[in-house]
Design a protein around this nucleic acid. Structure first.
Length: 272
DNA sequence: CTGAGCTCCTGGGAGC
DNA sequence: TGCTCCCAGGAGCTCA
């Protein structure tokens, strides 16, 4: 469910709740997520939240007593329940805040992540964090950097842009959408893209992700943001999940193929 | 280094 | 109704 736009929307919504708050208690379900929630998180009790940000699909909560890194995985979402609201099935982690609502992570499939770091240095040394490529909406992601990153990659371009070393935050939905916007066939070898095509793709990724953030992300079965609002980008999807329906450009039927084990949607006429 | 394949986990829907 | 199979927004691991 969550790709970069969903994580960004979530981060923006939990930020006001967390900023300046004092963490009174930390609870976890005892079930492992992608990895066990280590006992280190208990160091956050008594801490004051100083900063909330996003890097790739990670939410980073900096406090006076260390850093909390959270990832929503495939099925995670945050809620901000008030006092006395019962926990729900698949709630796995909770920050209890002094004089405020709590923050709860609910994650059905448990592919999410909650991990504690003592400081920014330790976070920066975390391999999954250190190896991250450029932010798609940042200045570090340009046609030039994209072309350089793709030059030696022979796998399909769709898979390449989902590789976080190339660019972070582009998941399965927005990969198809971005390639449609850039008029590029998702099956093309990444190395075959010309600098001009890399320019189109870079611009398309930025535009699609920014649009999705403005629309509160995409709702499929259940994505709702931390305020319980649903995302509306699903109404804007041009190709994803639309096999057999008409291409919004040319009217030809959208096709689907499997690339890297993930379903991929495209217009065989518009995308070359 | 690259890329293919498998894995973690739960739940919903299709088909029989 | 109930079973089995397939699929789902992510990403880390191993192996060739």
């Amino acid at each position: 469910m969550p790709e970069l736009p969903e994580v960004e929307v979530t981060m923006q919504e939990i930020s006001p709740l967390l900023m300046g708050a004092t963490i009174e208690g930390v609870w976890s379900s005892g079930k492992d997520l992608r990895e066990p929630i280590g006992p280190g998180v208990m160091a956050l009790v008594g801490a004051r939240v100083l900063r909330v940000s996003r890097r790739a699909k990670f939410i980073v909560v900096e406090t006076s007593q260390g850093i909390l890194l959270m990832h929503l995985g495939m099925s995670g979402h945050m809620r901000m329940p008030g006092r006395g609201e019962e926990r729900e099935r698949h709630d796995h982690f909770e920050l209890q805040l002094k004089d405020r609502h709590s923050l709860r992570l609910n994650d059905t499939r448990r592919f999410g992540l909650v991990r504690y770091f003592r400081d920014l240095g330790e976070l920066g040394a975390y391999p999954a964090f250190a190896a991250l490529g450029p932010e798609p909406l940042g200045e570090g992601f340009t046609p030039r950097t994209l072309h350089a990153a793709l030059r030696r990659r022979h796998l399909p371009i769709k898979q390449a842009i989902m590789d976080s070393k190339v660019v972070v935050g582009v998941g399965n939905i927005y990969a198809s959408e971005s390639l449609f916007a850039a008029r590029l066939d998702p099956r093309r070898p990444a190395s075959s893209l010309t600098p001009i095509e890399c320019g189109r793709l870079c611009a398309a990724i930025k535009r699609i992700l920014a649009e999705a953030i403005r629309n509160n992300g995409t709702t499929f079965d259940s994505f709702s943001d931390a305020l319980g609002d649903i995302g509306h980008y699903v109404e804007q999807l041009r190709v994803y999940g639309r096999r057999g329906r008409a291409c919004p450009n040319c009217g030809r039927a959208i096709e689907s193929v499997t690339l890297g084990g993930r379903s991929t949607f495209f217009c065989p006429a518009c995308q070359r």
